[in-house]
Amino acid sequence: MLEIRNLHAGVQGNEILKGISLKVNVGEVHAIMGPNGSGKSTLAQVLAGRETYEVTQGQVIYEGKNLLEMAPEDRAREGLFMAFQYPVEIPGVTNTYFLKAGLNAIRKHRGLEELDAIDFLSLVKEKMKLVGMDESLLSRHVNEGFSGGEKKRNEIFQMAVLDPKLAILDETDSGLDIDALRIVADGVNKHSRKDNAVIIVTHYQRLLNYIIPDFVHVLVDGRIVKSGGKELALELEEKGYDWLKDEAENVTVNAQESS
């Protein structure tokens, strides 16, 4: 579904991603972990098409297409979703209106009929239960005055409604208390199926107590220094990231030697 080959990206000449390769197949859940400043969020944003970042090298193939050549909205329409680390407020625009516009733009792109208000509402009600969201949030303006937890839940709710093929959760767990964390994880687990994929970007292991990943990758200084199964997350929890930083240096040395 997604193949990242030797991806280099940065901001204003400052390289953040220094050669990432990663393959995500349909039906898989991948966790990308790493210390602060390792480039986890940058990777998520680059995949979503954020213009702030410049890709200097490498390729990303998504469902056989060159993802990096697609506009952000086209990526969304092709089924790529990112749950934001800091969801943005849009004053005066209700959650429902926003989501309906998005969903219909996606449906239209896929040649599906746009949903009318009634069909949309019944879909929304069904998905709300999934994330235990209060109905009053529907008529409120997008993220305006939402608590941190409400914002994150709203992201998962949007994911549930838009039903993406590839969902990227950018530190969705940060700032959540344990109950909210459980609800968010529950939402992701219900969403995760044989025909879609999820990439979870996180600093902490605790979300992975609730969402069991098929693969865990550790990102340090813009490179994946270690990949493994779900047990790797536990190892990280125990040992922290420092021991991997040494490995990162080895990777650098190796990379330099081989180049």
Binding site: G92, V93, G102, L103, L162
Partner: peptide, 23 residues
């Protein structure tokens, strides 16, 4: 704001329209 809208499938123009109309 614009990027957030685009990430949900809206074009730039639709995003700006929506934000301005909300305003």
């Amino acid at each position: 704001q614009i990027f957030y809208c685009k990430q949900r499938g809206l074009s730039s123009e639709d995003a700006v329209n929506m934000i301005v109309n909300g305003f």
